[in-house]
Nucleic acid binder design. Sequence first.
DNA 1: TCTGGGGTCCTAGGGCGA
DNA 2: TCTGTCGCCCTAGGACCC
Length: 421
Amino acid sequence: MFALVDCNNFYASCERVFRPDLNGVPIVVLSNNDGCVIARSNEAKKLGVPMGAVAYQFQEMFTQNNIQVFSSNYALYGDMSARVMNLLSQFAPEIEVYSIDEAFLLYDKCDYLNLADEALKIKKVVTKSTGIPISIGFAPTKTLAKAANKIAKKFAERTNGIYIIDTEEKRIKALKWLPVEDVWGIGRRLSKRLFEIGVKTAYDFTQLSDDWVKKKMSVVELRLKHELEGKPTLEMADTAVAKQNIATTRSFDHNYKELAVLQERVSTFAASCAQKLRRQKSCCNAIMIFLHTNGHRKDLPQYSQNIVVKTPYPTNSSIEIGKFALEGLAKIYKENYYYKKAGVVVMDITPENRKQFSLFENSNPKHLLLMQAMDKLNKTIGNQKVKLARHDLGRTWKMKQERLSPRFSTNLKEIIEVKTH
DNA sequence: TCTGGGGTCCTAGGGCGA
DNA sequence: TCTGTCGCCCTAGGACCC
């Protein structure tokens, strides 16, 4: 059996943990640059705040309904997530951390276990130790566990946030209830296509023939169908596996025209990618750099371009990746456009210890020591304190974060204060 | 004025060598 | 030497997830 444990309205719940006065109060959390809504408490959902709502367009509604608005505080959410995952790992023999707010637990050869009791225990421990409310779905496949979780959440009062699909009857009932667009792995495009041929629920989807699904859709959807039928095709993924691509991309606070500004941004993104590479003990063999103007500004000329630069040798040096990224940038940069977004993606990733040296060109060995020293310093005195000269030494790039909560759990200076009278 | 960021997997189609 | 076919590899783009 698989369990899917999901934190309810995770970001909003994190904000509440240290602000109990916000219980029952509608909360929304905004994206980077305070652009749009990326998380909502149940109260905010009930008031009709849609996911992705553009913050400035909804400002009046926020004020009128006394909705508490927060900038996203990833230091806080990341730390709370680690705490929750750490607790979950004590229950099942195997855990797959699927995202910041959810994890699959594998209960293999645990027939003796009473799942309802186990779920209650998990809920109690996580809620008591972290203050984060969770929902749990148990089922024989990952896709069904997702569905079970959805039911647990949707009918929280009746289910106490726990739902177990352990009989054929319950499986059919769940599938007949679940709209096809809510099946894990069926997005907007596919559900539209399915709707056109009369498939409205997950159950309808399982009534299609395997051949048809494979031919008209793909093997992905065929696997999905089998999963819904209760035949496990998706296994627990090894989350320790190194990433295949690593990206650092950002929108800017304003539009920028000047190459110098973009050079500084791109080289900072490159250094961030390099640091992430070193953290997972990998090197990259190619770097993609991209630039975009603001697609929402129809009144301005648009330009969007990317370029892939192959590195002559595998590297994870911030200096080298920065250098190649700037070479790429120079090739795609065009004057007289207002740029709003840029990014660096490192690709073709290979393990650090499996470097193949080239006959003519190799990574500068001095960089290895320098990078190690840089990472060590950044770890002890605070991330991103030690930078390369081409980075933003002269100015500070600040995201728009007007409503940032304190980093209660990760920064001593911002720790919660208890006032007594 | 203001619209997020970071991933994965699969397929189609072209290049290319046997 | 030329041509057709097959299969492999690579890439771009599309779909999905949070």
